[in-house]
Amino acid sequence: MLFFSFFKTLVDQEITVELKNDIQIVGTLLSVDQYLNLKLDNIQVDTEKYPQFLALKSIFLRGTNIRYIHLNPSTVDTNLLQDASRREAMASAGEKIAGR
């Protein structure tokens, strides 16, 4: 759930998504769901090379086909992210002990 929450903080930011078929899509993050499916608005793609993306403004990307998401460093609070991941790791360790 950590990355779901993390990506929710990036809504309205401009991100670059690289898909597993090597296509890069730049766009404004509209929304994200639990599977990390993304919705982008005002997308920019190299349509010379990939005319498949002509005439598209808003796009829904299936999370399983995403390879990388490039972020602007200024939009990421690394300290907060480190903290959150430690807390999540602690919580899941606690769950394992409690579940025995």
Partner: peptide
């Protein structure tokens, strides 16, 4: 992989 909403005006000019 993706579902994109078509901008009809742009699509006509393609």
């Amino acid at each position: 992989v993706s579902v994109g909403m078509i901008d009809e005006d742009l699509e006509k000019s393609v």
